[in-house]
Structures are given as structure tokens and as C-alpha cells.
């Protein structure tokens, strides 16, 4: 069974074609890494799967656990088990991190935190942030930890994580990587992770990776091999390699 299937997916943003004929199957209980240069369409793909408004699907379909979710709204998709960790999450005046945790857990803002939630907060070293307005004045790394913390409270079946490791210090990266892997293993959830760094691979048990360039999937393979190639020869090599070995799906 696949947790996620994208079939012939093309997407426009503000009338501009960003993604072109994306085909992708993610088996359940698996983690897929997404690489690609800036502006290649990674965030667009992730937010299209999440169902964020403004990402106009011109053709193709998205299937979650065998259910066609192509025309569902973002909240409906969230309730079906999609959890999105944003690259640039917004600040919301007066809505606290603790409120976000309660909302993710299906409660109401202002509800008391459970013991389990308190432990989680402690593990993410966000004790000092729970009564602060979400993301307001958080550093880059603090935002990423807060996003991941919310994911742990939301308990999704499919995590969509947009650069969870960007702007994060070494220790926090280890923390995020380990907590994520622990959750994935314990829950049997799957993840779709955009990254520019290999470090997070150290903590993740992942067999799948893709390279996205110019709004198309350019290459698939083992995350470590792909990452090492990109590191050694850059994305240009991916382009040339693609010409030498056109992808068959």
C-alpha cells in the first residue's frame, strides 16, 4: 500500500506553471528526501500536497492512503492525517505556542497541557516559549523546533517537512532528527522531507530520494548516493546524468 500517490500532477501558481507532470509513489512507513536547487518547485510540491490555497492543480491527482484528496481543502487533508511543517511559518499575534500544541492535539486554545505534552515541550527545549506568541521573535532554529513539536502533537500519518534542518544549530538538528525518526518508527507514519543538507540523513532511516529541477522530478535513488553526488558535482551533474540516463518511471 502506498501512503501517497501523485499522478501526472501539474501545478500553477498565479498563472505560472511551476510543476510539470509529477509522478511519485511513496510506500507506507517510508521516508523520502527531496533535493533540488532554490526555486526548483520543492515548496510548491509540498504545499500542493498539503492543500494550501493558491496552488492550482491543472491536471493530475493526489491520493492519500487510497483516497483521492485532490479537491479537498487543507483542513480536510489535515484531518485525514497530513501534517505540514512549514519552511516559513507565520507569526500570529496573541496565539501562543501552547495554544498551537492544543489545537494540533485536537483541543482548544487555553486548555491545560497534558503531562505528555509538557514532556514533549521539554524534549524540544521550548519550555521558555510556550507562553509566547507563535513564531513572534523566534529565531530560525526555534521556529523549526516549534514546527516539529506541533507535528508531534498533531500525530500525522504523513509528515510534509519543508527544510526542517535549515537555520538549525548542530544540537537542535540532532534533536529534530532523532525525535522525528523516533516518531516515525513508533507510529508507522511516513515522511516527505525537503532538505539541502546531508546531516539529517544521519538520523533518518530513509531509502528514497528525489531530485527536483525546473518543476520536474529529475532523478530518484538512494538518499545518501544522491546527496553525495550533489555535494561532489553539483546539480549540474544531475542534469547531465538525466540526459545520459533518462528516467523511466
Amino acid at each position: 500500500m502506498n501512503i501517497l500517490e501523485l499522478e501526472n500532477l501539474s501545478v500553477e501558481v498565479e498563472g505560472k506553471r511551476i510543476l510539470e507532470d509529477i509522478n511519485l509513489h511513496l510506500p507506507e512507513k517510508s521516508t523520502m528526501l527531496f533535493f533540488g536547487p532554490n526555486g526548483s518547485g520543492k515548496t510548491t510540491l509540498l504545499l500542493t500536497i498539503a492543500g494550501m490555497p493558491g496552488y492550482n492543480i491543472t491536471s493530475g491527482s493526489i491520493t492519500l492512503n487510497g483516497v483521492d484528496i485532490t479537491s479537498l481543502d487543507v483542513d480536510e487533508r489535515a484531518r485525514l492525517g497530513i501534517g505540514t511543517g512549514f519552511q516559513l511559518p507565520p507569526e500570529i499575534t496573541g496565539v501562543k505556542l501552547r495554544d498551537m500544541i492544543k489545537i494540533c492535539a485536537g483541543g482548544r486554545p487555553g486548555d491545560d497541557l497534558t503531562k505528555e505534552e509538557r514532556n514533549l515541550i521539554k524534549r524540544f527545549k521550548l519550555d521558555d516559549f510556550i507562553n509566547r506568541d507563535i513564531n513572534l521573535g523566534f529565531s530560525g532554529g526555534e521556529k523549526k523546533r516549534a514546527e516539529m513539536l506541533q507535528m508531534m502533537a498533531l500525530k500525522p500519518k504523513l509528515l510534509l517537512l519543508d527544510e526542517p534542518d535549515s537555520g538549525v544549530d548542530v544540537e537542535s538538528l540532532k534533536l529534530i532528527g532523532r525525535e522525528l525518526q523516533k516518531y516515525l518508527k513508533a507510529s508507522g507514519a511516513s515522511a516527505f522531507i525537503i532538505t539541502h543538507h546531508g546531516d539529517i540523513l544521519e538520523h533518518l532511516d530513509s531509502k528514497y530520494a528525489c531530485v527536483l529541477m525546473d518543476g520536474r522530478i529529475w532523478c530518484r535513488g538512494n538518499p545518501r548516493e544522491i546527496y553525495d553526488t550533489i555535494l561532489a558535482r553539483g546539480y549540474r551533474e544531475c542534469a547531465e546524468c538525466h540526459v545520459r540516463h533518462p528516467m523511466e518511471d
Partner: peptide, 19 residues
């Protein structure tokens, strides 16, 4: 953002207003 955490549009609006 709040909808991505499972709230309906109306509930999300109300959370922001109360905040």
C-alpha cells in the same frame, strides 16, 4: 496555517480574533 493543523476556516478565524 491554523487550517493546516486541522481547524476549519471559521474556527481558525475565531482563534485569531480571540488571540
Amino acid at each position: 496555517y491554523l487550517m493546516s493543523r486541522g481547524l476549519s476556516r471559521d474556527d481558525a478565524t475565531s482563534v485569531i480574533v480571540r488571540g
